[in-house]
Amino acid sequence: MNLIPLVLSNVSLMDKAMKVVTQYQSLLIKGAINTVIVALIGTIVGLVIGLVIGAIRFVSLSHDRKDSKITVICKKILYFLTSCYVEIFRGTPMMVQAMFLYWSLKQSLNWTPYFAAICIISINTGAYMAEIVRSGIQSVDKGQNEGARSIGMTDMQAMFYVILPQAIKNAFPSIGNEFVVNIKDSCVLNCIGFAELFFQAKSIQGSVFDYTGPFLVVGIMYFVLTFTTTRILGIIEEKMNHTHSSIPASDTTANSIQRGGF
């Protein structure tokens, strides 16, 4: 007996959802595209910021007996400045950052919500990426750097050609995870009027006078986006771990004994 109203309301929820899907299709697709774009650009630019800041933080934390006094002081200052960036952006909600930065820079930059959203999510992601990159660098064996130095590479060359590629590979799962987090958390950018998925749900809700339909639809859309992304990232990770598997198996035994070419 009690089941009847529940089933009825479920049926009507499905109806409401279907109505949202059919009537507001284009709004929803536009929102989904904006969500993916802002998450993707934010992750990529964030990674670039993170690579630079993370490498700076790693280098400025490393002590070298050859360092002059000035170098030591520069390292301390750089570490302090990058720490401020990382701590502040990781320690406050992105929604607050978005409201504050968007409105405080609106006068001087005259930026659109779209552009502001991309900038804010990039800067925010950069703070997380910096720490991901730094621990990625720390996870690379110290011998890799010594090997590079021993053939005459500069610190920069060793970092660029040997260490960072391995750091990025080691950190790939965390980097991918930032992308998934950005797909979801970009929803807070609706507060500055950026028309991503959550923003569209809110405006649809305003015209149909119903909360459940729009947010069920949008929830499903978010899930499909994150689920697909996670699978794709998994496949890429798998591929990365199985590169260079191209040597014929027969070589392995035959040539470890034979020494040719002298």
Binding site: G147, I151, V162
Partner: peptide, 22 residues
């Protein structure tokens, strides 16, 4: 120093080959 290092090669106990390259 880096020019000098190219002339004095080093072979380590732990190999230290670059794992991100063939």
């Amino acid at each position: 120093i880096n020019t000098y290092r190219t002339k004095v090669g080093m072979v380590f106990q732990s190999f230290n080959l670059f794992n991100n390259m063939s």
